[in-house]
């Protein structure tokens, strides 16, 4: 290797060094800034929290103590509403009370029934979101809607639906309607319309427009062009986004349930706050199992629909 560089090479070398120095400086400033922000954030969060982090840390696993049931079979009994040997008339051990009787003998255990209710909330909301999102997406896509006003209105409308905090929608409908699943359906569907509509119209905008042009030349109306030129192309992607949204909505409807929207979320919050260990564990197991099952099922179906395309989960 030559020790002495030519003039040109020396200039290049100097530039390289200068660049490296600026880059290092930027990295240093960026990194230092980040550390300061993180430290300040942590101090702020610690101050704002009810329990201080380092004071509470030794008791971190205390909550698990409340969870340990008297007997691990209790978890099963709680899940399937079987009578408990510890039943002392209190709410804590009175599992059969929650049975949802189909006939005199046949019943659906309370938690499973509530889990199904949550799943149904999620499915219905996703269906509503998809139906409205479907229509809106064609109105918002640049290639299908030449009228900028309609497009703009459709897009802004979906943006507002998406950005509106779902707690507020749920809370508003809880105030107007009764307690129960309907506010949750409203909140989750309204958000789904915005989110799915956005995903859908991006799919539509990326669609191949040659078939559409062919049908325009045939004299097809707007609806016919959508039906025959675009729907066959976009449907697999729509279905895939539908499934993805369903996964997200199962979680969302559980959470909304916990703030008063019915379903399993509400029961989970109640049983945690009342310290019913066996009940909490059985709900957590049920919820965990359902979410895993829904995720796996939807991933499998999506793979079949659109191949190995990985989608970024979106909220």
């Amino acid at each position: 290797m030559p020790n002495r560089l030519s003039d040109r090479a020396a200039i290049i070398e100097r530039h390289w060094r200068e660049q490296a120095r600026t880059r290092r400086l930027y990295t240093l400033i960026g990194g230092g800034g980040l550390i300061v922000v993180v430290a300040l954030s942590l101090v702020f969060a610690n101050e704002a929290n009810a329990g201080k982090f380092f004071e509470r840390l030794p008791f971190f696993f205390d909550f698990t103590k409340d969870l340990v049931p008297r007997d691990w079979l209790e978890v099963l009994r709680a899940m399937f509403d079987l009578p408990s040997p510890y039943d002392d008339g209190s709410l804590k051990y009175n599992y059969p009370e929650g049975r949802y009787l189909v006939t005199a003998d046949l019943y659906i255990p309370e938690y499973i029934e509530k889990m199904l209710e949550t799943l149904n909330i999620a499915l219905l909301s996703t269906v509503i979101g998809a139906l409205f999102g479907f229509v809106l997406s064609f109105l918002a896509a640049r290639n299908m809607m030449p009228n900028a006003l309609v497009r703009g209105v459709a897009r802004r409308f979906m943006e507002i639906l998406r950005a509106f905090p779902d707690v507020v929608i749920a809370g508003f409908f809880l105030a107007v309607l009764t307690l129960g699943p309907i506010p949750a359906i409203m909140a989750v569907s309204i958000h789904s319309i915005g989110a799915l509509g956005k995903m859908f119209f991006e799919v539509v905008e990326n669609a191949d427009m040659r078939p559409e042009e062919g049908l325009r030349a045939v004299g097809g109306s707007w609806i016919e062009r959508v039906r025959f030129a675009l729907v066959p192309q976009v449907l697999p992607n729509f279905a895939s986004y539908f499934l993805l949204r369903f996964e997200i909505n199962v979680r969302a409807s559980t959470i909304i349930g916990a703030v008063g929207g019915g379903g399993i979320g509400e029961l989970l919050r109640l049983s945690i706050s009342q310290g019913h260990g066996a009940k909490t564990i059985s709900i957590v197991i049920l919820l965990f199992g359902t979410i895993v099952a829904v995720d796996q099922f939807s991933a499998w179906l999506r793979r079949r629909l659109v191949g190995g395309d990985a989608f970024l989960p979106a909220t």
Binding site: P211, L215, V218, A229
Partner: peptide, 15 residues
């Protein structure tokens, strides 16, 4: 447009 059919370089069928 019905009376005036169009054929395209890229066929423009619905695949």
């Amino acid at each position: 447009r019905r009376d005036c059919a169009m054929i395209f370089q890229q066929f423009n069928l619905v695949p």
